[in-house]
């Protein structure tokens, strides 16, 4: 996939009607940890399979007939859209319903929606990726993108934190990415269980282990609310300018394209203007409760 395609907002797909999801088949299910699985999906319709494009950081509304939809980011390689991955943690009724399904069941998809990570703004920069828990899922397509286009970027560091070593998602890939030497991967856990000998502590504690050149660094953050806040603040304190700190946030979503009102965050529609925001865009409401 060439650069321009990744930057342009791809046209979302839907059925005969805006609200009609498109059927996709579950081809594969992989356990990530005790409550998270990665589903590999493929559109039943070959035409849609060919047409479908997404940019890293975008999401689909994943639908289980009769149960409902949930906004779930796409976690697979943006360069190969023959199949799509969704990494899904069991949290509510829709995700529970998805986890009851197995190959070759049908789910529905609408999307891709939203604005993804700033691939072109990252060019020529040091890229620091900060992820917590399942927050790595929407960043995995970025990692693929970086690996495919490694020459366009300077140093790439991935800081990842989760509760225990067993909670790591894409555990094998984390090791493989680091082993290939193109990306520096640092992982920390809250609790060192089993044979873990790596760092222990919150993700931002890994900042001590890297050198951040504020002049040429761009930061991508995705994790639980607290991590988003703390990580963003930390980088700002390291003098990374607010327009080079990007966070992916979360809200209740219903339509996916800024018409239903649910996901408003200050003056932004999370689904249409986000979920990835430049810090400077949301500085007036960032960290505020109930906005």
């Amino acid at each position: 996939m060439d650069q321009s395609v990744a930057e342009r907002r791809p046209e979302p797909i839907c059925g005969m009607n805006t609200w009609m999801p498109v059927p996709a088949r579950i081809l594969d299910v992989r356990e990530e940890n005790f409550n998270t699985r990665t589903y590999t999906l493929q559109f039943v319709d070959e035409e849609i399979r060919r047409m479908y494009r997404f940019t890293p950081g975008q999401f689909n509304m994943v639908y289980v007939p009769g149960v409902g939809e949930a906004a779930i980011s796409i976690s697979s390689d943006p360069g190969s859209t023959e199949t799509l991955d969704h990494t899904i943690r069991l949290v509510g009724s829709v995700t529970r319903a998805i986890q009851r399904l197995d190959t070759p069941a049908l789910v529905g998809l609408r999307g891709p929606f939203g604005r993804g990570w700033p691939l072109s703004a990252m060019e020529g920069k040091d890229v620091v990726i900060v992820a917590g828990g399942i927050g790595l899922a929407p960043l995995r397509p970025v990692v693929y993108w970086l690996l495919h286009n490694r020459d366009l970027y300077r140093r790439v560091v991935l800081l990842y934190g989760c509760r225990t070593p067993e909670d790591r998602v894409f555990a094998e890939e984390l090791e493989a990415w680091d082993a290939r030497g193109k990306i520096h991967v640092l992982v920390t856990v809250d609790n060192a269980t089993g044979s873990w000998t790596g760092p222990v502590g919150v993700v931002t504690s890994l900042l001590r282990r890297i050198k951040v050149n504020a002049e040429r660094t761009i930061v991508l953050v995705c994790g639980p609310k607290v991590l988003n806040h703390v990580a963003a603040w930390n980088f700002l304190q390291l003098h990374v300018p607010p327009d080079r700190v990007y966070v992916s946030l979360e809200r209740n979503m219903n339509c996916g394209f800024g018409r239903c009102g649910h996901c408003q965050y200050g003056g932004k529609f999370m689904c249409r203007d986000g979920p990835v925001f430049r810090f400077s865009e949301v500085a007036d409401v960032f960290g505020k409760e109930e906005v």
Partner: peptide, 12 residues
């Protein structure tokens, strides 16, 4: 309480 640039206050 916060504007881009005024970033040294820590979390609001």
């Amino acid at each position: 309480t916060l504007r881009p640039g005024e970033v040294d206050h820590g979390p609001v």
